[in-house]
């Protein structure tokens, strides 16, 4: 479980996050939505100890302030928007980077196993020897997903693993977005994995999210099931645009 208590963060005099308290549980897809500048990505960065904050964050019962960078990277992985490498690296070399926190000089058997399995899971094993920079945007993001998951591939007895997604779907087409979310649903069934993701598309959020956190101006507008959070009133108040919400075969469709 990931517990945030009164989290605030600011750059200069601008408050990016204001008194956010929320808990994310394993076995669920937690999605953060909100307008631009509402603090979604900032929250991900705060949770992964990348920027400073006031308040407390607990990974299970351990305060984030007492977890070193190195230790954190053994059970918390972050997938970002898009990642490019500066030098020609092979796909498997990129995926192997996910294992870097786990070995000192050269990868061991478990590291190779994790890389193999993660690459199969995201169907990028056939690209293993390709040059990463020659891949398409969708392929790259699948490789990165494999890398990020390889980082936390093995369960840790008595502890949760944490997967944060920082707008990972932005540059992907519809097909890739849905494939991606379906993979995420499969992962969700592992009951030691805490998944927290930022998405832009409200329909995607309502379809795949188990709980939705709606942020606006650095504050929590609403947190709960999609039907409770993504109401016409909430959406209009946050996004300043009036939505039309339809029900179709039990699914929610949000249009503007």
């Amino acid at each position: 479980m990931l517990k945030l208590e009164n989290i605030s963060s600011s750059i200069g005099s601008k408050k990016l996050l204001d008194q956010i308290s929320v808990s994310f549980f394993p076995g669920k897809i937690n999605l953060i939505v909100g307008p631009n500048g509402s603090g979604k990505s900032t929250l991900i960065k705060v949770m992964s100890k990348q920027i400073s904050f006031d308040g407390n964050i607990f990974y299970e019962d351990v305060n984030l302030r007492n977890i070193s960078w190195r230790d954190l990277s053994k059970f918390r992985a972050v997938l970002s928007q898009h990642t490019d490498v500066a030098f020609p690296l092979k796909v498997w070399e990129v995926v192997m980077m996910g294992r870097y926190p786990h070995f000192t000089t050269s990868p061991g058997k478990p590291d190779e196993q994790a890389v193999r399995e993660a690459m199969h899971y995201f169907e990028v094993h056939s690209l293993a020897d390709r040059n990463y920079s020659t891949l398409s945007g969708g392929e790259k993001q699948r490789v990165n997903f494999a890398r990020v998951l390889a980082q936390i591939w093995f369960s840790i007895p008595g502890r949760c693993r944490y997967l944060f997604l920082d707008e990972p779907l932005t540059f992907l087409d519809v097909n890739f977005q849905y494939q991606f979310m379906k993979k995420l649903q499969l992962l969700e069934q592992k009951n030691d994995l805490v998944i927290v993701g930022v998405v832009h598309d409200l329909n995607l959020a309502s379809k795949f999210g188990d709980s939705i956190l709606l942020l606006n101006e650095g504050r929590v507008t609403s947190f709960g099931k999609p039907v409770e959070v993504l109401t016409a009133e909430n959406i209009e108040r946050s996004f300043k645009i009036k939505p039309f919400i339809f029900q179709h075969e039990g699914a929610m469709i949000i249009s503007f």
């Binding site: 990129v94 980077m97 870097y100 926190p101 000192t104």
Partner: peptide
Amino acid sequence: VKSLNALAMGEEEALYLGVN
């Protein structure tokens, strides 16, 4: 060298991989 490899993906990614 390992940290420098991770840096090939950018500072942010290297941070996520535990690089100081």
